[in-house]
């Protein structure tokens, strides 16, 4: 009972706006600390790979970006379902606010993968199942953004993109299992397989740090966009009016 009460409270746009505003400075500080740790670990302390030498260091941006591209989509799809069933405003805002940063991470996964593929595999791009399905994900993010901007009424727009996000969610297991279901040039999973990860511990720790840093960045970007979106949607409400008066009095 307590929890639902709390959730209802935080799910009100005004409370969410203030809550994010309080969290953001701390999250940004933490992001830079974790990022510095991850970069130092990945570029300096991690040993070179036995096969790939230093080229494998691209893993520290490529893999976290690829994980984020999938994770953000899942967050979007879950919020899309919540938005459609319960009509919770915050969920609508999270769906659209995640799309931009999700598209950015997907783009990064593709570009850094290409920069890794050229020296190691011998090609910038190939149409194997993993690469193709990740490209489809990028287009999904793009269509969600385009569809949202095509509607004048943002609540109708949210409904439309929620449905599209749920239609596209099938692509997520396809991306993840593509390397298992089909022959691909891309290798199999390293960290997320069920037995122990097949990466040396000194190489794994910076990878997890970078993944944590990228997660923090997602949270930061999401909160910033969500705050902006809330202000735009609630522009005529009393609390926004108060907020404006307060800031103009300063």
């Amino acid at each position: 009972m307590m929890i639902t009460h709390y959730l209802h409270k935080i799910a009100s746009p005004a409370a969410f706006y203030l809550f994010c505003g309080r969290c953001l400075p701390w999250l940004i500080a933490l992001f830079f600390i974790v990022l510095a740790l991850g970069l130092y670990g990945g570029l300096v302390t991690a040993p070179a790979d036995y096969q790939q030498g230093d080229a494998f260091r691209i893993i520290y941006v490529h893999v976290p970006a690829a994980w984020m591209s999938l994770f953000i989509y899942l967050v979007m799809a879950i919020n899309a379902a919540v938005a459609l069933i319960w009509r919770i405003k915050i969920s609508e805002v999270i769906v659209v606010s995640s799309a931009y940063i999700g598209a950015s991470f997907t783009f990064l996964a593709l570009v850094t993968g290409s920069l890794w593929g050229k020296p190691m595999w011998g090609t910038w791009w190939t149409w194997d199942a993993r690469l193709t399905s990740e490209l489809v994900l990028l287009f999904l993010y793009f269509s969600i953004i385009a569809l949202y901007n095509a509607y004048e009424d943002k609540r109708v727009a949210s409904k439309a993109i929620s449905i599209l996000a749920l239609v596209g969610v099938i692509n997520i297991p396809i991306i993840h299992y593509s390397v298992v279901w089909w022959n691909t040039l891309h290798q199999g999973a390293t960290v997320t397989k069920l037995d122990k990860p097949s990466i040396h511990i000194d190489m794994l720790i910076p990878l997890l740090e970078m993944a944590f840093a990228f997660n923090l960045y997602y949270l930061i970007s999401l909160m910033q966009r969500a705050r902006n979106e809330i202000l735009k949607r609630e522009f005529n409400s009393l609390w926004v009016k108060k907020l404006c008066q307060e800031s103009s009095n300063e």
Binding site: D49, Y50, G122, L185, S198
Partner: peptide, 18 residues
């Protein structure tokens, strides 16, 4: 016409591989 290298999902320092 084209030869690409496939690598596996294992990453380790050379000493460990040896």
């Amino acid at each position: 016409e084209e030869v690409l290298a496939k690598h596996d999902e294992n990453y380790m320092p050379p000493e460990v591989a040896d």
